[in-house]
Nucleic acid binder design. Sequence first.
DNA 1: GAACCAAAACCAGTTACATCA
DNA 2: GATGATGTAACTGGTTTTGGT
Length: 258
Amino acid sequence: MVLVLNHPGSSENGSISGNVGLLAAARVFEVNRLPAAEEVSSANSVGSPFQRDFGIYANTGNENLGGNDVVETERVLSSRASDDDENGFNTRKKLRLSKEQSAFLEESFKEHSTLNPKQKLALAKQLNLRPRQVEVWFQNRRARTKLKQTEVDCEYLKRCCDTLTEENRRLHKELQELRALKTSNPFCTQLPATTLTMCPSCERVATTSAAATNARTTNIDSTTKPINPFPLSRPRFYPFSQTPPAPNHHHHHQSAAS
DNA sequence: GAACCAAAACCAGTTACATCA
DNA sequence: GATGATGTAACTGGTTTTGGT
């Protein structure tokens, strides 16, 4: 399934009317078309008594969208719907989108997570939904994406925490061993202190000049090398198999010479 | 250009409903 | 069939953005 929506700036017209195939395909979405008030009792396959008793959506007339009426109609449609109908009954009713509609919206979300009014209208028309429904779907979809990213971030931070806890434990143990060594071998105290600095970019540890020479002789092996608790770049949630942006890693250590 | 206002867009949080185990 | 859990469409209220005066 291919969705053709005009990208911002790509065209003046957000209409999809030029795509005959899509118009034909749009018939698929009639299944979940919003019923006009008088259609409620027969249009929905679920057909709950609730639906029959309460008109769900007012007939907004969006089937007749076109020409200059579009902007004005959109303005009306996008205004927040009231829960109450004219009789004061709560008419809120949830309509489950069909698989085709959801898939179509998903496809368009891949293209752009936000819609301009024209795109929204075109999509709504194509899917036989109200623009407000498309708008809400995109809002909820963005929220879901954000939630997913938060979960990924949370998981990542948990791992960082575990790593740091483990590193802390290891360093405590090492400190105890060094103290024990110090008491048993007083010559160790003659060694100069080693100053370690960490590159904020690549997070490598380097020894500073004066101590460097000695540091190389002070038996700093791999076990005492500080562990980078953040070995990986911060994971991002790429919901649509998007390739993450190429890392912009500048190695100023080398670039200074070249 | 700054200040103000209204409308639209957006978001976070919540509610209500459909569906499934 | 009743019930709780879950997913999600739809709503609410607040904030930000945008365009007009």
